[in-house]
Structures are given as C-alpha cells and as structure tokens.
C-alpha cells in the first residue's frame, strides 16, 4: 500500500546574481529561488492496483515518483510505501520496489544486458532458481532473446525499455513505479509493453503507478487516474468518472485531458 499525505517538494534553484563581482557574490552568499514542484498532495493506492499518474510537463510527476522511490527527500509531508518510509528505510524499501524511467536507463551502459541482470541478481540477492525462472519468463514475454548479449548503448529505445523493465522486476518487487515507460516507443512495441505491464499487474499482483502522456495507455491499462497540475491534484478517481465529469460518456479522452489541462492552467 502506498499512502501520501500532504506531500511537498520545493527545489532551491540558485539565482544568478547581477552587478559587479557577481560570481564571487554567488559563491559567498548564494541566493535561491524556490520552486514548488509538488505542493501538498494526498492519495492512497491499495495493493494490486494499477494507477495512471498524468499531468503536463513540469506538473511534478517525476518528482513524486522520486520521492516514492526514496531517492528524493520530501520537503514536508508523509510518504509510506509497503509500510516503510522510502527515504528513511532506503535499502529495505529499494529491495521491495522496481523503478523504470523511460527517459534514462538504469542498466550499465557498456555492459551486455544479461551481465547487468546477473550483477543486479547479486545486488538484490535473488536466488538462482528464482532468477532463472524470472529470466525465462521475461525473455519470453518481452522477447529479450535477440539482444541479451548486447551492451545497453547499442539497443534501440524499445529494446532498452524492455530490458529495463525486466531488470526492475527480477527481484519480484511488490510495487512498480514507471515514469513515462512508453515515451518514444513505436506503436507495436508500445502494445507489447502495455500487455506485459498489465499481465504483471494482474498475474503477480504487483502494484503499479505509471506516468504517461499517451491517452491510449490510460484507456487500455488503468481504471484509476490521478491528475496533477502545478504540483496539486486536480482529479483522483476512475477513468469512467473522469469521462462523466469532463465531457460525457463518449467523449474523446484526448479532448478530456486537454480540457483538464486548460482548466488547471487557469486556476494555477
């Protein structure tokens, strides 16, 4: 279970200083500008749920995911994932989650995929039998076979995301955070990723929180969405409810999303 209460993250951005000795000034007494990336959000996600987390660029999605993963410390508020506080119980927490950033790989750039998986096996202390079983299953479902021996830097984007997904699931995490996993991936590969993620959620009961800009992802994969704008939650509920609230049953999801973003832009 994931619970988030009044969660905030404010980044400090060093402000360039003006006038004489600007560089010196910024070294001696740096001035900061504050940017509220996540501005007091609350939600609860139950075990086995798959939730879409959507919002415009810069809305605060990645910042939320990073706090849930424990790699970013919240400025205020509470986070709890599977009973642990991510940034405090880091190691134990990290063993129980998988994270994929669509924008950047977490595999070793120069190392063949299979070797990366083998090194991760030791880091997460996965036993041989479980490793073999998972490797077989993921190789089959994600069609990793053709590029297992290739270093990550040689992979296409679609192949890379598939390798990253397999790596994130090798240690059987209870919870999976996916930050724009389908970004830049072609239609066929997207289709396969969706099927895989859905299957992992359904068959293994893995809780999934997934950010995306792809309306097809939302329609095909999730029943519940959380919409965030300028660090605040605009909507949290079912996809059905989203339609009802913003445009009627047969409205196009793309139009609805556009509508919400516009509205959010007004209030923000």
């Amino acid at each position: 279970m994931i619970t988030v209460k009044n969660l905030r993250k404010t980044y400090k951005i060093a402000k360039p200083q003006e006038g004489r000795f600007a560089t010196l000034k910024s070294l001696v007494r740096p001035r900061y500008e504050e940017r509220r990336a996540v501005d007091g959000i609350d939600f609860t996600i139950n075990d086995g749920e798959m939730v879409g987390y959507i919002g415009q660029n810069g809305a605060g999605k990645s910042t939320t995911i990073k706090m849930l993963s424990g790699i970013l410390v919240p400025t205020a508020g509470e986070v709890s994932v599977n009973g642990l506080t991510p940034h405090k119980d880091r190691r134990e927490h990290l063993r129980g989650i998988g994270v994929v950033f669509g924008q950047k790989t977490s595999l070793w750039w120069d190392v063949p995929v299979i070797d990366s998986l083998n090194i991760l096996k030791e880091m997460y202390r996965v036993d041989d039998a479980r490793f073999r079983k998972n490797l077989e299953m993921f190789t089959d479902l994600l069609d990793l076979g053709p590029f297992l021996e290739q270093p990550v830097r040689q992979l296409s984007l679609g192949q890379r995301v598939r390798a990253d997904l397999a790596a994130a699931l090798m240690h059987d995490p209870k919870t999976l955070f996916l930050d724009e996993p389908t970004i830049g991936v072609d239609v066929i590969a997207k289709e396969r990723l969706r099927e895989f993620i859905t299957e992992i959620n359904r068959e293994r009961g893995v809780t999934v929180l997934l950010t995306t800009h792809d309306v097809v992802d939302m329609e095909k994969m999730v029943k519940r969405v959380i919409v965030i704008n300028a660090g605040q939650i605009l909507y949290d509920g079912s996809m059905l409810g989203l339609r009802e609230r913003y445009g009627g049953e047969d409205a196009d999801i793309e139009d609805i999303v556009r509508e919400i973003y516009r509205e959010g832009g007004k209030t923000a």
Partner: peptide
Amino acid sequence: RTGRIDTDLLRPVDLQQQLLAR
C-alpha cells in the same frame, strides 16, 4: 553528465561498494 546518477541511487548497495566490486 547524462543525468543517470539518479538510477545509481535506486540500488540497495552503496555506490562506493558497487564501484569497488565492479
């Protein structure tokens, strides 16, 4: 440089130990 340092923080093993082993 590539901004991937985030992903090193996702490992349950300390960066220094990771690198020492590798």
